[in-house]
Simulated assay, not measured.
Amino acid sequence: MRSSLSDLQRAIKGLVVMSSELELMYNSMLTNAVPDAWAKVAYPSLKPLASWIKDYHDRIAFMRGWLEGGAPPCFWLPGFFFPQGFMTGVLQMHARKESIPIDALNFGFEVTEAETGDDVASPPEDGIYVNGLWIDNARWNRTTRRLDESEPGVMFSPLPVVHFKPVLNYVPPAGEYQTPLYKTSVRAGALSTTGQSTNFVLCVSLPIREGTESDFWVLQGVALMCMLDN
């Protein structure tokens, strides 16, 4: 980014030739779009350029705080380039701690009362606290502590901090909806070299409103996202 911006500034001043790549970058900036030269090597995102830059700096601040101050009590999952790898590492640490095979471990989920990561004072004994997720086409009812229908005119709503807890031979509860978690609102993705989807992360099991079944929420198109498009 630094070198391409420097080259663009020089090209605008007429000090170097304006290449086709620099021209595309300039045109993208005029329309508040992320230049293709940056997007093709960056994390998946549908944000416009202004929001993308802010999100980019938030990610840097999150990682720098982790490096300089140690692991945070709550992890901002959208800040990871490859969150699947991070969560595999969490399971590996728990498997070593308990001396059990990692293949028998999976995550169980509990939505806490903490609204944001700042409300979390200390990490859990097992697993991790995760914040920064959004619910698409539904909301979290803080009274009933269940998934509920969206408020009128509200498409996205924040999900409180979630406890990702490693569970041996985990079986999802029958009365919960296996909510797919995506990095962006595009509910599709190509397989990466690791065999993982470039967009789908995992399914988060959430309790649902009484009197409904999983099929109801499937038809509603309910999913979780790591980031919004704006």
Rank of each mutant, 00 (worst) to 15 (best):
residue 6 S to L: 14
residue 9 Q to A: 09
residue 10 R to P: 03
residue 10 R to N: 13
residue 12 I to N: 12
residue 12 I to R: 15
residue 12 I to Q: 14
residue 12 I to M: 13
residue 14 G to L: 06
residue 15 L to Q: 15
residue 17 V to P: 03
residue 17 V to M: 09
residue 17 V to E: 14
residue 19 S to I: 05
residue 21 E to M: 09
residue 21 E to L: 08
residue 22 L to V: 06
residue 27 N to M: 10
residue 28 S to M: 12
residue 28 S to H: 14
residue 32 N to G: 11
residue 33 A to M: 09
residue 34 V to H: 07
residue 36 D to T: 15
residue 37 A to L: 12
residue 39 A to M: 14
residue 39 A to K: 15
residue 44 P to V: 08
residue 45 S to Y: 11
residue 46 L to M: 08
residue 47 K to H: 06
residue 51 S to I: 08
residue 54 K to E: 09
residue 56 Y to H: 13
residue 60 I to Q: 12
residue 61 A to R: 13
residue 62 F to N: 04
residue 64 R to I: 07
residue 65 G to D: 13
residue 70 G to Y: 01
residue 70 G to I: 01
residue 70 G to S: 04
residue 72 P to D: 00
residue 72 P to G: 02
residue 80 F to M: 05
residue 82 F to A: 08
residue 82 F to G: 02
residue 85 G to L: 11
residue 86 F to M: 05
residue 86 F to I: 03
residue 87 M to Q: 12
residue 87 M to L: 15
residue 88 T to E: 15
residue 89 G to K: 01
residue 89 G to W: 00
residue 91 L to W: 08
residue 98 E to R: 14
residue 100 I to Q: 04
residue 101 P to K: 02
residue 102 I to K: 11
residue 103 D to H: 09
residue 103 D to F: 09
residue 110 E to Y: 08
residue 112 T to C: 00
residue 114 A to Q: 14
residue 115 E to P: 01
residue 117 G to T: 13
residue 118 D to A: 15
residue 118 D to W: 05
residue 119 D to G: 09
residue 119 D to L: 10
residue 120 V to L: 02
residue 121 A to H: 10
residue 123 P to T: 08
residue 123 P to R: 15
residue 124 P to R: 00
residue 126 D to Q: 08
residue 126 D to I: 02
residue 128 I to V: 14
residue 129 Y to N: 00
residue 130 V to Q: 00
residue 132 G to Q: 01
residue 133 L to D: 00
residue 134 W to C: 01
residue 134 W to K: 02
residue 136 D to R: 08
residue 136 D to C: 06
residue 136 D to K: 07
residue 136 D to W: 03
residue 137 N to S: 11
residue 138 A to T: 00
residue 140 W to N: 03
residue 143 T to Y: 04
residue 144 T to Y: 04
residue 146 R to C: 12
residue 147 L to P: 00
residue 148 D to R: 08
residue 151 E to Q: 09
residue 152 P to I: 02
residue 155 M to P: 00
residue 156 F to V: 11
residue 158 P to F: 07
residue 159 L to W: 05
residue 163 H to Q: 02
residue 163 H to I: 01
residue 165 K to D: 07
residue 167 V to Y: 05
residue 169 N to L: 07
residue 171 V to I: 15
residue 172 P to Y: 04
residue 173 P to D: 05
residue 178 Q to G: 11
residue 178 Q to T: 10
residue 184 T to C: 07
residue 187 R to G: 07
residue 190 A to G: 13
residue 192 S to I: 05
residue 193 T to H: 13
residue 196 Q to A: 14
residue 197 S to M: 04
residue 197 S to H: 03
residue 198 T to K: 07
residue 200 F to K: 10
residue 203 C to G: 05
residue 203 C to Y: 09
residue 207 P to L: 01
residue 209 R to L: 15
residue 209 R to D: 15
residue 212 T to M: 02
residue 218 V to K: 15
residue 220 Q to M: 11
residue 221 G to Q: 06
residue 221 G to Y: 06
residue 222 V to E: 02
residue 223 A to T: 14
residue 224 L to F: 11
residue 224 L to C: 08
residue 225 M to L: 15
residue 226 C to R: 02
residue 229 D to N: 14
residue 229 D to C: 12
